[in-house]
Simulated assay, not measured.
Amino acid sequence: MAPEQAAGAPALPEGSADSTPDGDTILDADLQASSAAHDAAEGAIARLYGEPLLRLPNDLYIPPDALEVFLDAFEGPLDLLLYLIRKQNFNILDIPMAQVTLQYLEYVEQIRKSNLELAAEYLLMAAMLIEIKSRMLLPKRQDDLVEDVGDPRAELVRRLLEYEQIKTAAQQVGSLPQLDRDFLRPSLPVEQGLAPVWPHVDPHDLQRAWMDVLRRAKLTQHHRIGREELSVREHMSAILRTLQSNRFVEFSDLFQGQASVPVVVVHFVAMLELAKETLIEITQAEPFAPIYVRLAYSPA
């Protein structure tokens, strides 16, 4: 049996063996540490590697413009001026110069503090607005000798209207679909055919080459009276012997050593007979290119 409990001592429920004074002390310490860490995290200015940073290091240097965020919302003075007019639904043909100039100067004062170079262009427009406002405050002279210069705002209105037209046109052009931005041009690989593509040559090129050989043969001929027997078969054999030692022979080189016109004619007829019997091939790469003669290709 379990020993009797001391008088006046509260009974412990089942499963409360960890609820000892030592356990309560450990639990309170964990809660206090967690609460202190939470309070420190809320007051931290930053986190470094997950740990809260409560104060800045003494040797930390932050440049003046390190945290500067500049939004280039306007593309120039005219853009800012047009924005102020359109935002408040002012009539662009009757601009209230006092209100617009005041709002414009407030914006210029803001950008002048951060970027003086950018503010220079805006300051020029501000001077123009102040001049127009001053001219509008002057009383009109009722003098026939002084020409009426008209509304001082006319030139500014003209520039604003032209700028708005150009800006609208630029936005419309920018909204059009553009290649490589909104769509891509499709491309499909096309396999080349296995059939050979022969060059488009003209048989007249062979005729011109033959006429050139004949012309040179006439330049070296001699007037001789005699009878000469010429054999086409012999010239065919001579052509085949020449082509066996050379892979390609140019058409004009095939007639080297043929001095007289009859010999050249017979030699040409022999070449045509060999081509007719498919023993040789006459080739040309392209129009007006040199003509070559070679032995016909015979597969093994």
Rank of each mutant, 00 (worst) to 15 (best):
M1C: 10
P3M: 11
E4W: 13
A17N: 11
G23T: 03
D24F: 14
D24I: 13
L27W: 08
D28Q: 15
D28W: 04
L31W: 15
L31D: 15
S34V: 10
S35D: 14
S35M: 09
A36N: 07
A37K: 13
D39T: 14
A40S: 10
A40T: 15
A41I: 02
E42W: 11
A44I: 01
G50H: 02
P57I: 06
Y61L: 04
I62K: 11
A66Y: 05
L67V: 14
L78E: 00
L78R: 01
L81D: 00
Y83D: 04
Y83R: 12
K87V: 14
N91C: 04
I92H: 03
D94V: 04
D94Q: 05
P96R: 15
V100L: 06
T101C: 04
Q103N: 09
Y104T: 00
Y107G: 01
V108D: 02
S114T: 13
N115Q: 09
E117G: 03
E117T: 05
E117R: 12
L118T: 08
A120N: 07
Y122C: 01
L123C: 08
M125L: 06
A126T: 02
S134T: 11
L137E: 08
L137S: 11
L137F: 10
L138Q: 07
V146I: 10
D148F: 00
D148Q: 00
V149K: 01
D151F: 00
D151L: 02
P152H: 02
R153N: 03
R153K: 06
R153M: 01
R153G: 02
R153E: 01
L156S: 00
L160H: 00
Q165N: 10
I166T: 09
K167F: 03
Q171C: 12
Q171N: 11
V173N: 04
Q178A: 06
L179Y: 02
R181V: 14
L188C: 07
L188W: 13
V190N: 14
G193F: 04
A195Q: 13
H200D: 13
Q207N: 12
A209K: 10
W210C: 04
M211W: 11
D212H: 15
V213Y: 08
V213A: 07
R215F: 08
R216P: 05
A217Y: 05
L219I: 04
H223M: 15
I225P: 09
E228A: 15
E229K: 09
L230M: 05
E234A: 09
L240R: 04
R241K: 12
R241Y: 11
T242P: 05
L243T: 00
L243R: 00
N246S: 12
N246K: 05
N246E: 09
F248H: 08
E250D: 14
E250A: 07
L254S: 03
Q256P: 15
A259C: 12
S260H: 08
S260P: 05
P262L: 05
V266W: 07
V269C: 11
V269N: 12
L272F: 13
E273A: 10
E273P: 03
A275R: 15
K276D: 10
I280L: 12
I280Y: 01
T283F: 08
Q284M: 15
E286Q: 13
E286I: 13
E286Y: 09
S298R: 14
S298P: 12
